[in-house]
Amino acid sequence: MSGFGPGDPFLSDCPARLVVELIGDISRKMLTQTLRRLQAHGLVSHHAYAEVPPRVEYELTPLGATLIEPIHMLTERGRANGDTVLDALGGDPEQGV
Rank of each mutant, 00 (worst) to 15 (best):
72 H>W: 06
5 G>H: 06
21 E>M: 07
36 R>V: 06
67 L>C: 03
46 H>D: 03
14 C>A: 15
14 C>Y: 04
21 E>T: 04
3 G>A: 12
1 M>P: 07
70 P>S: 01
17 R>E: 06
14 C>W: 03
80 A>S: 15
17 R>M: 04
83 D>C: 05
66 T>D: 00
37 R>Q: 12
57 E>C: 05
26 I>V: 15
39 Q>F: 00
91 G>T: 07
19 V>I: 15
35 L>C: 03
67 L>I: 01
29 K>Q: 13
77 R>T: 05
2 S>W: 03
89 L>K: 07
85 V>R: 14
45 S>G: 10
65 A>G: 02
22 L>Q: 13
79 R>S: 02
27 S>C: 05
88 A>I: 03
85 V>D: 04
55 R>A: 08
68 I>N: 02
36 R>F: 08
1 M>Y: 10
93 P>A: 12
35 L>A: 10
26 I>T: 11
60 L>M: 02
23 I>G: 07
77 R>C: 06
28 R>W: 07
16 A>K: 11
81 N>V: 05
47 H>F: 07
29 K>H: 12
47 H>Q: 13
27 S>M: 10
76 E>A: 12
41 H>C: 01
24 G>P: 08
90 G>H: 13
20 V>N: 04
62 P>R: 00
4 F>R: 15
24 G>T: 13
21 E>C: 04
17 R>Q: 12
8 D>S: 14
50 A>K: 13
91 G>F: 13
60 L>P: 00
66 T>H: 00
92 D>M: 09
75 T>A: 11
65 A>K: 08
90 G>P: 10
73 M>H: 14
28 R>L: 10
22 L>I: 07
68 I>K: 03
68 I>E: 06
77 R>Q: 12
2 S>P: 03
10 F>P: 03
43 L>K: 00
57 E>T: 14
75 T>Q: 11
71 I>N: 01
77 R>Y: 14
96 G>Y: 13
37 R>S: 08
33 Q>A: 11
8 D>H: 04
38 L>P: 00
26 I>Y: 10
18 L>P: 02
13 D>Q: 14
76 E>D: 11
64 G>S: 01
96 G>E: 09
95 Q>D: 09
62 P>H: 01
4 F>P: 01
36 R>H: 14
92 D>A: 05
14 C>V: 02
19 V>C: 08
29 K>G: 08
75 T>E: 04
40 A>G: 04
69 E>F: 04
19 V>K: 04
41 H>E: 14
30 M>E: 14
27 S>Q: 06
55 R>Y: 02
65 A>N: 01
26 I>Q: 07
48 A>S: 10
95 Q>A: 15
